[in-house]
Design a protein around this nucleic acid. Structure first.
Lengths: 257, 257
DNA sequence: GGACTGCGTTCCGGAATCTGGAACACGATA
DNA sequence: TATCGTGTTCCAGATTCCGGAACGCAGTCC
């Protein structure tokens, strides 16, 4: 009844803000009687609100409140907002904070560019690690065994330059470690370019990635590297606020939780 | 297992961002074995994260993501943000959007003043209706019977000018209806002044209240009325965006959620 | 070292809750 | 009136939950 609740709540997305019983039942592969009861129970508990006219359900205001509290409850998220804001102001491009969740990179904070963008990196969206700057930054400093375990068996080709070969990806991660930042250019979508850098906590573990992204028309391949300094800068500043010291003794461990 | 989940999540507040098993057990009045299982289950479902070092629980990032989606899922909240921002810019004071929840006024959006404030109206905080501008605006256009049902039997005195008599409060609500806006001055806290106005949806029902609040030192009693026009303006603009038409036929009904 | 304290988990039989196919309700089309 | 699409209710069998007691594990104080 609890895992089910989360799976129900995760049916919602910016493109589906409300849902009906049958629609949810199909999506979940459960009989409608069961889902009807679930939705009613979840709404009674306060996680969903029901539109009195259409009878459809949507995420509740109470959930909005809890979420607001949640985003301020980890220092990572709270501190990141200022860095993201500064990064977007400095570069003019959209910036995101992503973390590793279930083998994928998930955006948990975003500040959008004032310029026209392909609204692709909304909060909550998850991305495959092998095709994104965020994913590469999150994986690069992890054990190779863990990386292999986290990645799917096959690396699907998502855009013209997606890396689909595991060895090639591992080699790319080594380059990320050398340079300190990651990139993705026409790897997730053909019009998308991104630059990312790792965020570390007091133990040195990589706990997140700061990324800026833009249409390739604004960041041609050759000028990708020019965006690295501000991103690195922001990521290092954030890491420092989380207690990471470049010269410290705790720099050893790179695994995460 | 679901109602319990909500009651657990509601233990968290800006002043308690994490919690341990025993602390939660005491707060909930349940045996620690039960609460231990609950917390573990809730965390397994993804609503809580567990600090690997302290073993304590906090609201999860996944919840932050859901909350972000939730706050954009009702047009009320989405549209209110711009109005709140404008209101705070215009008046220089903190503005809030509140809704009625379980007989109390709950803040669901806030834009804080750049000036020093008594950080009192955080998102998620609930207030008794009889002592707040938000509560009065939310109640004033409801049936008298409903108002009596929503209010507690006794109206506790919370500050020097709190209205503690029901008839007096009903009279005050009539004045709110006449003027179109509500006020509270030293009614919730001795240093707090506020002005509020109702937000209506397409059916004319009062679905929320916009409020600005400040220390009494910045809003003396005699100048309270001067703050009404911008608040009313913002509330009316928001109502219009929600489909409310002053001249429409749907202006009749005032009940509703 | 040894006893103690505080926090948290595990165990287990009785009790409470959930499950899903079928039947039912109800408004909107046709 | 018939039909369709949505959503709720029913009920016996299966599953899960409950909470007191016992246990594990660090710290901490003599």
């Amino acid at each position: 009844m609890l895992g089910k609740t989360m799976s129900v709540l995760e049916l919602f997305s910016p493109t589906r803000r409300e849902i009906g019983v049958i629609e949810a039942a199909e999506e979940l592969g459960r009989p409608k009687s069961t889902v009807s009861r679930w939705l009613a129970a979840i709404a009674a508990a306060g996680f969903l609100d029901r539109d009195p006219e259409s009878g459809r359900y949507r995420l509740s205001m109470r959930l909005a409140v809890l979420g607001d509290l949640a985003r301020n409850s980890t220092s990572l998220q709270r501190l990141a907002r200022a860095e993201l804001q500064a990064l977007t102001t400095a570069t003019g491009e959209t910036s995101n904070l992503a973390v590793l969740m279930g083998g994928e990179a998930m955006n948990i904070e975003a500040v959008e560019s004032p310029r026209p963008i392909l609204h692709v990196g909304w909060i909550g969206r998850r991305f495959p690690c092998h095709a994104t700057a965020a994913g590469k930054a999150l994986l690069a400093w992890r054990d190779q065994d863990e990386v292999k375990r986290l990645l799917p068996r096959r690396l699907p080709k998502l855009a013209s330059r997606t890396i689909t070969d595991l060895d090639e990806l591992l080699h790319e991660l080594a380059r990320v470690r050398e340079r300190g930042y990651s990139t993705a250019w026409r790897e997730l979508e053909d019009d998308l370019a991104a630059v990312g850098a790792p965020v570390r906590d007091h133990s040195g573990a990589v706990v997140g990635a700061l990324v800026i992204s833009a249409p390739v028309s604004r960041i041609p391949l050759k000028s990708l590297a020019a965006y690295a300094p501000p991103v690195l800068n922001a990521a290092q500043s954030l890491s420092a606020q989380l207690g990471y010291r470049l010269d410290g003794a705790a720099v050893r461990r790179n695994g995460g939780r």
